[in-house]
Amino acid sequence: MRKPIILFAVGLTMFMAACGDNKSNRLPILGHRDAETKTVDGKEVTDTVYQTIPPFKFVNQYGDSITDNNLKGKIYVADFFFTSCPSICPTMHRNMLNVYNAYKADDNFKILSYSIDPKYDSVPVLKKYADKLGISGQSWWLLQSGKDETYKLATSYLTSVAEDASVPGGHVHDGWFILIDKQKHIRGTYDGTVTTEVTKLIADIKTLQAEPEQRVAQ
């Protein structure tokens, strides 16, 4: 009588252990999600629809127009900053330089830093900042566009930005680094002011690149 129960327990444990192994090499998909039911070949199919980064149009430090189309087939990390930022930005970009140096040779990886002070951060200002930061080429884009568009886009990245005259620099914002996959899903958020979190981000990018869905060209 007891044997089947033990066998069942062993079987269940093995099954769960096997599942766990499968999942440990995948990063979670963050953000809100919806269920979408549609009819395929006369059968009702329900799919999970994950939050995606909406289309956008910005200008980079070279004066080139950059849209979501430029990120097709790319994994990227995004953050929000401004060049005259006296608070957390220097720490964030000191840490982001580690991400840049780890992946700058990879054509399918990019870093996007959106300026939340586009009035001051013109294209020449962004270029000068990039030069002084020591970054070149096309792997790290510093982007600017209209303020409203930028602030609206920040919420899609689960990041909060705002103008606040009472703080030094006149803007408040989170220090998150957001990891985006080729399907435009949010796969991780990391505190850009904490070195250990950024080290984890560098490791997670590698984990993400190894996922089957990320290896196919888009």
């Binding site: 006296p86 608070s87 220097p90 720490t91 000191r94 330089l97 900042y129 002084k132 930061l133 020591g134």
Partner: peptide, 16 residues
């Protein structure tokens, strides 16, 4: 000071 000048006083490239 640390945000800009770093925990080891390393600064930031040619910016700080």
């Amino acid at each position: 000071c640390q945000n800009c000048h770093g925990d080891k006083g390393q600064g930031l490239a040619a910016l700080i």
